[in-house]
């Protein structure tokens, strides 16, 4: 394999904090997007603050977390990010999180493609045994995408979140290396 970080539609890169900070500042003004991504309420942080935050966050990269930006291959536009956190290297387990900040790229397979690339990186480069994720129950589009790449349902944290006066569950999903290999998705 000559380009492990390239998929069909996207490739994963690492960018300087100032490049990401510009995007993060914009994306975080999209409160609906933040609601799919985070249980924390949207905060309107300045570009300066995001840059500081990202600089600090990237220092941890490689040890217990890994952070990539997602770029559209065709236009080279920066459209989102994907990362591993709670990376327990000795256990071979990690949690994955993904978000596409650019709404024009939703529902067209870009996220699914990025996740496939991340799975290949996790299983073939980090030698993980499994990856897990949390998705909110009000995000069926994400759930379908995760199912498509081979994640299966592992349980739900009842009423973990309150939004718009309702309680919502967290869904846990996971994929084992063996399942990923059996699926035969992008092994080469």
């Amino acid at each position: 394999m000559n380009n492990m970080l390239h998929g069909e539609l996207v490739h994963l890169t690492v960018e300087d904090p100032e490049v990401m900070a510009k995007k993060f500042t914009l994306w975080n003004q999209d409160a609906g997007w933040v609601r799919f991504l985070d249980s924390e309420p949207s905060r309107l942080l300045s570009e300066k603050k995001w840059q500081e935050w990202l600089e600090k966050d990237l220092e941890k990269s490689g040890s217990d977390q890994i952070f990539f930006t997602i770029k559209d291959i065709e236009s080279e536009a920066l459209i989102g990010f994907i990362g591993l956190f709670d990376l327990y290297k000795t256990q071979g387990d990690a949690m994955v999180a993904i978000a596409l900040g650019e709404r024009d790229f939703w529902g067209k397979g870009y996220g699914t493609d990025a996740m496939r690339v991340m799975l290949r990186y996790g299983f073939n480069e980090l030698n993980l045994r499994r990856m897990g994720l949390i998705v909110f129950e009000y995000n069926p589009r994400a759930i379908r995408s995760y199912e498509k790449v081979g994640f299966s349902y592992e349980g739900r944290v009842r009423g973990a979140m309150q939004r718009d006066g309702k309680r919502w569950d967290y869904l846990f999903m996971g994929i084992l290396r063996d399942e990923w290999l059996a699926n035969g998705i992008m092994i080469d």
Binding site: G132, R158, G174, L176
Partner: peptide
């Protein structure tokens, strides 16, 4: 507490894999 989540084989200890169980009480 009720069992809510089972992260399958999330642990590798002594050559054996184990689930990680999340429990919850409302």
């Amino acid at each position: 507490f009720m069992e809510e989540v089972r992260c399958r084989k999330a642990l590798l200890r002594d050559g054996q894999t184990w689930d990680v169980v999340h429990l919850g009480i409302l």
